[in-house]
Design a protein around this nucleic acid. Sequence first.
DNA 1: CTCGGACTTGAAGTGCGCTTTAAGTCAAAC
DNA 2: GTTTGACTTAAAGCGCACTTCAAGTCCGAG
Lengths: 129, 129
Amino acid sequence: MANITIGEVARRAGVQTSAIRYYEKIGLLPKTQRIGGQRRYETGVLNYLEIIDVAKRAGFRMDEIRQLFHGFGKGTPAFRRWQLLAQRKIAEMDDLIARAKKMKRLLEKADRCRCLDLEDCGKVFLKKR
Amino acid sequence: MANITIGEVARRAGVQTSAIRYYEKIGLLPKTQRIGGQRRYETGVLNYLEIIDVAKRAGFRMDEIRQLFHGFGKGTPAFRRWQLLAQRKIAEMDDLIARAKKMKRLLEKADRCRCLDLEDCGKVFLKKR
DNA sequence: CTCGGACTTGAAGTGCGCTTTAAGTCAAAC
DNA sequence: GTTTGACTTAAAGCGCACTTCAAGTCCGAG
């Protein structure tokens, strides 16, 4: 574990340092050790940032990500609450997948028939579910 | 086409009247006729609002929805630009579907193995793509 | 010992997608 | 003719997820 600076983490993860500080502030990343006042990270934080990125881009809010990734110790009484959130998010992922597929089909149809507006294939599209 | 008020549209579409006015303001909904200064809508606007809702919840920004739904007349010179945007959004829908599936699998795995954190199955999860 | 550059903090600023507020208009009911 | 309630506008406010700013600290190179 390399003990890298925030600048190095930012470079490797492709995020800005300000975002990393913000994540720490809101409790999404743990407070890490300081050397001469400066943050030092272990490379494991990169995995964390990758999961955060995937979750964010799947529409998760920051507080949800925080709860899902720090919200319970193994066998904690909070685990049931964690499970409920996780199950809700799993269902939301199914909804999101369905909507994304629907939009994809709508755009493909519009591209083919060149008639995307209220009166034309958008309407037809909605009608046929 | 019934010529309904904004309040009726809001009620039927399940949105607030302020949102409808906002959509008109940013050019997402066309300016509709006024009677005594008040907006009157045809029921077709409900289809529009439904498409807007699906698009929004699939992560489309307002200006993208506007461009996709008003950005071209049939056979217009802007059509090529429309097609590029549509193709980009279709690709983004594929990415989004992949991320949503990934998050779903991650949550399901975490629920099963009760070890969702940086050092445990999150890491494993990322490793196996 | 001083310079440069990467880091620190708290606070203010940004852009999006609305909602809320304030002040006013209009038409139907009483 | 006044009251009621839904509507109108422009402008300000809000929550989120950051970014930017201002002022300062720390450390290695020259």
